[in-house]
Design a protein around this nucleic acid. Structure first.
Length: 421
RNA sequence: UUUGUGUUUUUAUUGU
C-alpha cells in the first residue's frame, strides 16, 4: 500500500486527479484494501485540488468502509472545509470528532483558529485558543501566529499585540513576518510611535534584525503620516545595513512625495531607480501616471501609458482611473470618455472606483443624467454603489440646484441602511 | 506513507 499511497499523493499534488483515480482502481483491482492512511492521502489530494466535495466523499467512504477516522483524517477534513469557508461543516466534523472520543491536538486548533479568523469570526477563533489552553495543549508558534493574524485581520491591533507579548513571554519566538505584520498593523492603526519602538527593539528582542519588508512597512507608515524626512532617513539607514531597496521601497517613497505634492522628487526617484537598476513594476507606472495627471500633464501621462504598454505592461484599472481622473481635472472630458471606451475594448473591467471617477467628473460638469445612467450601468453589472458614489451624486445634485432631489435620495439611502457616513 | 499559521509592505475615485 505504501507505494500506492505515494503514487496517489504524487499524482494528487501534481493535480493529475484522473490518473490518481486510475491508480486507485488498479490498487483495488489487485486486491489491496484501502486503509485509513490511504483514504487520508486521497482526501488530502482532493483538498489540494480544491475539490472539497470529492474530499468529503472520500471521508464518507472511509467511514462506510467500516473504519474509524483517526485524528489526522479529522484534521485534514477540518482544514479542507475551513479553507472552503464551510464553517457549519467544520463545526459538524469537529463535534463528530469529539463524540468519537478523539482529542483534538494543536494542529486541529491551529486550523480552526486560522479559518475562523479569516472569515472574520475572531471571537470564535479566540474561544478555540482558550479551549486549547484548557485542554492543556501548549500553543506553538503556529497557533499563536494564527490568532495574531485573526486579530489583525479584524483590525484589532491591540488584541493582536497582547497575544504577541504573551507569546514572547512564554518563550515562543515569533518569526520575522509576524513582527512585520504587527508593525504594519500598528502603522495602519495610527500607532506610529509604538510601531517604531517595536521596529527598533526587533534586533535586541529577537535574533532576527528588521528585514527589507520591515523597512518598507515602517517607511510607508511614516510617509503616509507625512513624516517624509524620517522616512528618507530610514531609506538611507537600510542601505547602510546592506539591505537593497526594491521596487516596493521606491514605490512607497514615490507615493509619499506624490501625496505631499513634491512632484519633482517623484520624478527624481524614478530616475534613480533606473540608475540603480531597480526594475519598475506596474505600481511604479501607476504612480507616475497619477503624478503626471494630478499635475495636469495629461499628454505626458498618456504617452507614459503607451510607453509602458509597449514595454510589456498591461495597464490595469488603477492606471486607467488615474488617467481618466487626470483628464477630468484638466477639463478634458472627451479624452476621458475616449479612454474609458478604449479600456473596455482592451478588456480591462471597470470597478466601482473607476465608475466613481467618471461620475465625479461628469457631476462636476453638471451632467447628472449621465451620472445616473452610469450608476444604472454599474449596478446592472453587479457592482454595488458605495459611499463615495452616494456622496458624489449628492454633491452634484446640490451644486446643480436640485437640493430637494438630494434630500430625497439621502433619506432613501438612510432608509435602506446605506449611510450616511 | 497522511494533517496546521503567510495580502508581512506599495498605487486610483467623493466631500475644499
Amino acid at each position: 500500500w505504501s507505494s500506492y499511497n505515494l503514487m496517489i499523493k504524487m499524482l494528487g499534488q501534481a493535480q493529475h486527479l484522473g490518473e490518481m483515480e486510475q491508480v486507485l482502481h488498479e490498487a483495488q483491482r489487485k486486491g489491496f484494501n484501502m486503509d485509513v492512511v490511504g483514504f487520508t492521502v486521497l482526501i488530502q489530494s482532493y483538498g489540494r485540488a480544491k475539490k472539497t466535495e470529492a474530499a468529503v466523499g472520500a471521508f464518507k467512504r472511509l467511514k462506510d468502509s467500516g473504519f474509524e477516522p483517526d485524528l489526522v483524517a479529522y484534521n485534514c477534513v477540518i482544514s479542507i472545509l475551513g479553507r472552503a469557508g464551510d464553517h457549519e461543516g467544520v463545526r459538524k466534523i469537529y463535534n463528530e470528532m469529539l463524540r468519537d472520543g478523539k482529542e483534538p491536538d494543536v494542529y486541529t486548533y491551529s486550523s480552526l483558529i486560522s479559518n475562523f479568523g479569516k472569515s472574520g469570526k475572531v471571537d470564535e477563533a479566540r474561544n478555540f485558543f482558550e479551549e486549547m489552553i484548557h485542554r492543556d495543549i501548549t500553543p506553538t508558534v503556529v497557533a499563536y501566529s494564527a490568532l495574531i493574524h485573526a486579530f489583525l485581520y479584524a483590525s484589532r491591533v491591540d488584541d493582536a499585540f497582547e497575544i504577541f507579548q504573551d507569546m514572547k513571554g512564554k518563550g515562543v519566538e515569533p518569526e520575522a513576518w509576524v513582527y512585520n505584520s504587527i508593525v504594519n498593523g500598528l502603522c495602519k492603526a495610527g500607532q506610529l510611535d509604538k510601531a517604531y519602538e517595536l521596529f527598533e527593539k526587533m534586533k535586541e528582542e529577537n535574533r532576527i534584525p528588521p528585514d527589507l519588508v520591515t523597512f518598507n512597512t515602517i517607511i510607508d507608515g511614516l510617509g503616509k503620516a507625512g513624516q517624509l524626512n524620517k522616512a528618507k532617513q530610514l531609506f538611507t539607514r537600510m542601505k547602510g545595513q546592506a539591505l537593497v531597496p526594491d521596487s516596493i521601497t521606491y514605490n512607497i517613497l514615490m507615493d509619499a512625495y506624490r501625496r505631499a505634492g513634491e512632484e519633482d522628487e517623484v520624478h527624481r526617484l524614478f530616475q534613480e531607480m533606473s540608475s540603480k537598476a531597480v526594475t519598475p513594476d506596474l505600481v511604479t507606472c501607476n504612480i507616475m501616471i497619477d503624478t503626471l495627471g494630478k499635475a495636469g500633464r495629461t499628454q505626458e501621462a498618456c504617452s507614459f501609458l503607451d510607453k509602458m504598454t509597449n514595454q510589456g505592461f498591461s495597464p490595469d484599472v488603477f492606471s486607467v482611473t488615474s488617467l481618466i481622473d487626470g483628464f477630468f481635472k484638466a477639463g478634458e472630458v472627451d479624452e476621458a470618455c475616449w479612454l474609458f471606451e478604449r479600456m473596455r475594448r482592451k478588456g480591462v473591467e471597470p470597478n466601482v472606483t473607476l465608475y466613481n471617477a467618471l461620475i465625479a467628473g461628469l457631476a462636476k460638469r453638471g451632467q447628472m443624467q449621465q451620472c445616473f445612467m452610469l450608476v444604472q450601468e454599474m449596478e446592472d453589472k453587479g457592482w454595488v454603489a458605495d459611499m463615495v458614489t452616494l456622496n458624489t451624486i449628492l454633491d452634484g445634485l446640490c451644486k446643480t440646484g436640485q437640493v430637494r432631489e438630494a434630500v430625497r435620495l439621502f433619506n432613501e439611502m438612510k432608509r435602506k441602511g446605506q449611510g450616511p457616513d
